[in-house]
Amino acid sequence: MILTLSLTVVGLILIGLYGLLAVRNLFKLIITLQILVKGAVLALVIAGETSGRLQLGQSLAVTVIVADTVVAVIALALAVQLKQQSGTVDVGRLDTLKG
C-alpha cells in the first residue's frame, strides 16, 4: 500500500516536473503546479503513516491544501488579468522582460 502510494507520489512529481518544462499554456501550467502539490500532499500523508504520526501528517496535508488554494487563486487571478492585458496565455510569448 505504502509502496503503491509512494510510486504514485513519484509519478505525480515526475509528471509535474516534466510539465513545468513542456507546458506553454499559462492556465495549464498552474494546473501542472497543482499536480506537483498533490504529490507533495500525498507524500506528507505517507510520511505521517510510516513514521507513526498519521495525525500530524494529515493535519499538515490539510494545511497545505488550504495554503495552496490561496496560491492557486492568486495565480489564476493574475493569469486572467494577464490574458486581458496582453491577450495571450502562451508563456513562450510572455517574454518582454529579458536580458
Partner: peptide, 17 residues
C-alpha cells in the same frame, strides 16, 4: 551571458529542474 536571461518561463523552470 545576458542571453541566458531569456524571459521564457519554461526556460526558467528548466533552470530549477
Amino acid at each position: 551571458w545576458q542571453l541566458t536571461q531569456t524571459g521564457q518561463l519554461n526556460w526558467n523552470m528548466a533552470g530549477i529542474v
